[in-house]
Simulated assay, not measured.
Amino acid sequence: MNATTAMTVIPTLETSRLRLRAPRFADWPAYLAFLASSRAQFMGGPHTDETAWPFFCNDVAQWQLFGHGALMLEDKDNAAVLGQVALCKGPLFPELELGWFLYEAAEGHGYALEAAAAMLQWGFAAREEQSFVSYIDPENRRSIRLAERLGASLDETAQRPHPATLVYRHPRP
């Protein structure tokens, strides 16, 4: 799929515990709180509302522009929003990136692995790419471990958005 055939419907994906759904404006306050916190250190943060808003809009707009973007992680039992998973690219990254983040209360429950695995499965079913990448700060040990648990391996030859960024490649199954 390319920009001329982009989807206009954002998918809803479900796992045993999670609903991965389109971002809503009601998600903005928690999203901003995350990006304004030290938890966003590996995403160029902490951010102000002026620098966080473009992130949020980019995550939503990529669905209409390219047929991929971000989905919010929602607990199926209580509808609590736990974080985000995304397949994003646009003009910012050399390749289509699988990315994720969790809000602090959601850490340590396996939600990121569950959501990222579901997004990978959807991505390979819906798109023709032979692989996706995850761009990870070398200090972000938790994301490195998660990428490896998802079956990704370090690709030292891949183009990267910043020279220090690590690129983990998720091959098509």
Rank of each mutant, 00 (worst) to 15 (best):
G123H: 03
T4N: 10
N58Q: 09
W53I: 04
A79W: 13
A70P: 04
S134I: 00
L120S: 01
L92W: 10
R160L: 06
L13F: 08
T165S: 13
R39M: 10
G99S: 15
G90H: 03
V167L: 08
I10V: 15
A6G: 04
F55T: 15
F42R: 00
H47Q: 14
E148D: 08
E95Y: 12
A26P: 15
A105T: 06
F42D: 01
P173H: 04
L71S: 03
A164N: 07
R149D: 09
A40T: 11
L146W: 01
E97K: 02
L35E: 09
Q62Y: 02
L73R: 02
E129I: 03
D59P: 11
E50M: 06
G108N: 12
E128L: 15
F93A: 01
I10H: 01
N78T: 09
D155W: 02
A106Y: 08
D137K: 09
Q130Y: 07
A116L: 07
L13Q: 05
P91R: 10
T15E: 05
T157E: 08
R19G: 11
D77G: 02
M72D: 06
Y111W: 15
P138M: 05
A105K: 07
L71A: 05
N78S: 12
Q64V: 01
L150H: 00
E14A: 08
F101L: 08
R142H: 07
V60A: 04
G83W: 02
L92H: 10
W53L: 14
A147K: 01
P161R: 12
L65G: 05
R39Q: 13
A125W: 11
D59E: 05
F56G: 10
A125F: 03
L65N: 04
A126Y: 06
V9I: 15
D137R: 09
A116N: 04
M43N: 11
G45P: 03
A152Y: 00
A26S: 13
A26T: 11
T48R: 08
D137Y: 10
L73K: 00
L73H: 00
R149L: 14
A86G: 08
A6D: 02
F132C: 06
G69H: 00
R39S: 10
V60Q: 10
S134Y: 00
F66A: 01
G83Q: 07
A22P: 00
R141M: 06
P163C: 11
G110W: 13
R145H: 11
N2G: 12
H109P: 01
R145T: 13
P46C: 08
L35F: 15
A106H: 10
P163D: 15
A61D: 02
A30L: 13
S153Y: 06
A30H: 07
H170T: 02
L35H: 13
M7H: 09
A61S: 10
L150T: 00
E104G: 06
S143G: 06
Q130V: 07
L73E: 03
H109M: 12
G99L: 03
F34R: 05
G151K: 02
R39I: 03
N58P: 05
E129G: 04
D49R: 09
P173G: 09
F101C: 03
D27I: 15
P54Q: 12
D59V: 12
A105W: 11
M43W: 15
A33N: 11
L120W: 01
